[in-house]
């Protein structure tokens, strides 16, 4: 594919953006990208990752049978096949709507983890906050033990006791 800026060299950087459901693409070569200050970010590898994972996942029928109950998000109309094309989900609800299908992908991208550990917004209800904090401490404790950092492990265990 030819670069859309210089119309000479081969385009190796591909940018995509969806606005109002219309897909805009931009294909440029590395030299023009450098001159215009355009990224050749690791976007490609993320897209590769997504497409590999989606390809290895069960078909829609299988998904509907054993996993998520709907094929489109009732809030935004997003369907999972768009994730590979667009690289992003449609709305925050999609994480719940497509949870079963997304879990293997999330697990792969995050070194096996599927549960948040860390900061919680202050506006989150108190009970939820405690729950996340406890789960965070448990994950940190597991990590400390794995890394044989027993001093930190003891400290985390004490903090968990205080929380309970």
């Amino acid at each position: 594919m030819q670069c859309q800026v210089c119309n000479k060299r081969t385009a190796t950087i591909h940018l995509t953006e969806i606005t109002d459901g219309v897909r805009h693409e931009m294909h440029i070569c590395e030299q023009c990208a450098a001159e215009q200050g355009i990224a050749a970010q690791s976007q490609m590898s993320i897209n590769d990752l997504l497409s590999n994972l989606l390809a290895s996942q069960p078909s829609d029928d299988e998904l509907l049978g054993g996993g998520d109950e709907v094929s489109a998000c009732p809030n935004c109309g997003f369907t999972l096949d768009r994730l590979q094309k667009e690289g992003t989900l449609g709305c925050p609800h999609d994480y719940e709507v497509f949870q079963h299908s997304l879990l293997p992908l999330i697990q792969h991208a995050h070194n096996g983890s599927t549960t948040h550990c860390g900061k919680v917004p202050s506006k989150v209800p108190h009970d939820t906050k405690k729950l996340v904090e406890l789960s965070s401490l448990r994950q940190e404790l597991e990590r400390a033990i794995r890394e044989e950092d027993y001093e930190r492990a003891a400290e985390l265990r004490d903090r968990m006791k205080q929380q309970e």
Binding site: P92, T115, H116, C117, K119, P121, K123, T128
Partner: peptide, 20 residues
């Protein structure tokens, strides 16, 4: 109000940024 979920943390457009 940030998009946040107790299981997945801060919800991001791409799942690769999820959590923190």
């Amino acid at each position: 109000d940030y998009a946040f979920n107790p299981r997945f943390g801060y919800l991001t457009a791409c799942p690769t940024n999820l959590g923190t």
